[in-house]
Design a protein around this nucleic acid. Structure first.
Length: 478
RNA sequence: CGGGGUGUGGCGCAGUUGGUAGCGUGCGUGGUUUGGGACCAUGAGGCCGUGAGUUCGAGUCUCACCACUCCGACCA
């Protein structure tokens, strides 16, 4: 049991991690349940977090030459049917619109589970020449997948995301694009969300329906389970052929373009919660926290306190800090607990004693440390603290990832490690799907990815014991 | 889709052998407080998931349905 648990309404994370997550999500005012299973209301605090993630990503997309676009919500059935693997992958979980008003439609329409086919249809109309390429598109939208079991942020039937879709003249260019976008996702996770990632390629079994190759960033949550936090796909010219997208190349020969797509969703918010949260609630990385510093006047009725607190907020805001004041008549203790629950990185208290000493008191959310700040130093000190909190959150998460990733050479070793520690396990792999399935049956783990950073942990596949050159990281996934 | 659980003020729950609904918290108002979830007073808020049935009488018993939730199979 954690000794540092101040908030009794939150279930202890070491007792029941799932319940802890649900508690956080509702008590920190991120989510409300709607009347329909699997559809969640993102309350303003959660949406603000998403907007901050959007702002960062959108800039990175645009800086790398991408443009935003908006595609239709509905897909005619025949369109969805065109690429065989793609339909097979998505058909089981699409929702259909069958009526317009009271009239039954001649052809039913699927609510987009993803928009590949819509982009293909569009590109077929607008692409003629190599001069039209590349097309680097992105859309921010929500999609619908009729999932059976649902959880806030991690798996909803409707979820907000961005889906990037690009079309290129050559395979090489498209492949580079999938790598570049994966790098952008990794940068977002590591530098802004303080979530260390494992970058790699998915096995054929785990890859996206219709893709030639799928890449992913995998993160480790506090309970040592894996969360796939972003994926990019290389499609080759499979979709282009299915949809008959052709262009005249520089030699005036007809050619099929090569395509990619990539996506990242509000699931990341679930990742932030499960990476940094603790028994007192959320713990948000300063770079994306909706409120970076909450200013609390103590004994606010005493003369000069409110004015001094207002002045702090003004100075912080002028300095680019997302600061807020809470002047409500709740007791200070209540406010302390409240903003800890909401994961605000820095709390700044100012009361009569501080004013007397020309100082204020800052309290870090990540480690509880109290720091007296002399008022003239406010801006520089707060910047420094926010920066340090960001770094220490990353360091802590990195430590969790590194210390809970282990190598194994045999199936028994895999099982033993899982029983004792959980976490990620690296083994060699022969490349057969059969062995991959057996690993799941026997050990209960799925392949997370084939990391780009390979280590040779042995010479043979632990399942079939045939020679193996590829290292796979295994884990229990969300 | 298979197995388990739960449906009673906003939230968390109690409700005895059937007798006409209560507690905690939250919310409103007034006041005292204010450096780790303050206190007093007072007030509002319920089709007891839905529908049938048994009964003089159902939150309670019977049946059916619905919803949510957890665990499996499938997935960002």
């Amino acid at each position: 049991m954690a000794k540092d648990k101040n908030v009794e309404q939150i279930t202890d994370m070491d007792v029941d991690f799932g319940q802890w997550f649900t508690d956080i999500v509702t008590k920190a005012e991120l989510i409300d349940y709607s009347g329909v299973k699997g559809f969640f209301i993102l309350r303003p605090y959660a949406y603000a977090l998403w907007e901050n993630i959007q702002t960062v990503l959108d800039k990175m997309f645009k800086d790398s030459g991408h443009e935003n676009i908006s595609m239709p919500l509905l897909i005619p059935e025949n369109l969805l049917q065109k690429e065989k693997d793609h339909v097979e992958g998505f058909a089981p979980e699409v929702a259909w619109v069958t009526h317009g008003g009271s009239e039954e439609l001649a052809e039913r329409l699927c609510i987009r589970p993803t928009s590949e086919v819509l982009f293909c249809e569009h590109w077929k109309n607008i692409v003629n020449s190599w001069r039209d390429l590349p097309l680097l598109y992105n859309q921010w939208c929500s999609v619908l997948r009729w999932e059976k079991s649902t959880r806030p942020f991690l798996r909803g039937r409707e979820f907000l995301w961005q889906e990037g879709h690009t079309l290129h003249a050559t395979a090489e260019e498209a492949e580079t694009e999938t790598q570049n976008m994966l790098d952008i996702y990794a940068e977002l996770c590591e530098n802004y969300l303080a979530m260390p990632v494992v970058k790699g390629r998915k096995t054929d079994k785990e890859k996206f329906a219709g893709a030639e190759a799928t890449y992913a960033i995998e993160c480790m949550m506090h309970d040592k389970k894996a969360l796939q936090s972003g994926t990019t796909h290389y499609f080759g010219d499979g979709f282009a052929k299915a949809f008959e997208i052709q262009f005249s190349d520089k030699n005036n020969k007809l050619a099929y373009p090569h395509q990619t797509s990539w996506g990242l969703s509000t699931r990341l918010i679930g990742g932030i919660i499960m990476t940094h949260g603790d028994n007192n609630g959320l713990n948000l990385p300063p770079k994306v926290a909706p409120i970076q510093a909450i200013v609390l006047p103590i004994a606010a009725h005493k003369p000069g306190v409110i004015e001094a607190a207002d002045e702090l907020v003004k100075r912080l805001k002028d300095n680019g800090v997302r600061a807020k004041i809470d002047k409500s008549d709740q007791s200070p203790g209540w406010k302390f607990a409240q903003y800890e629950m909401k994961g605000v990185p820095l709390r700044i208290e100012i009361g009569p004693k501080d004013i007397e000493n020309n100082q204020c008191v800052a309290v870090r959310r990540d480690n509880g440390e109290k720091i007296s700040i002399s008022l003239p130093d406010l801006e520089s000190k707060v910047n420094e603290l926010l920066d340090d909190i960001q770094k220490s959150l990353y360091a802590r998460a990195k430590e969790n990832l590194v210390s809970n990733t282990r190598n194994a050479a045999t199936l028994d070793e895999v099982k033993t490690i899982l029983n004792r520690h959980g976490g990620f396990i690296n083994t060699m792999w022969c490349g057969s799907e059969e062995c991959e399935l057996k690993m799941r049956e026997e050990a209960g783990v799925t392949s997370r990815c084939i990391p780009f950073e390979q280590t040779r942990t042995g010479d043979v596949c632990p399942i079939c014991e045939k020679p193996a050159d590829t290292m796979v990281v295994w884990g229990v996934a969300y």
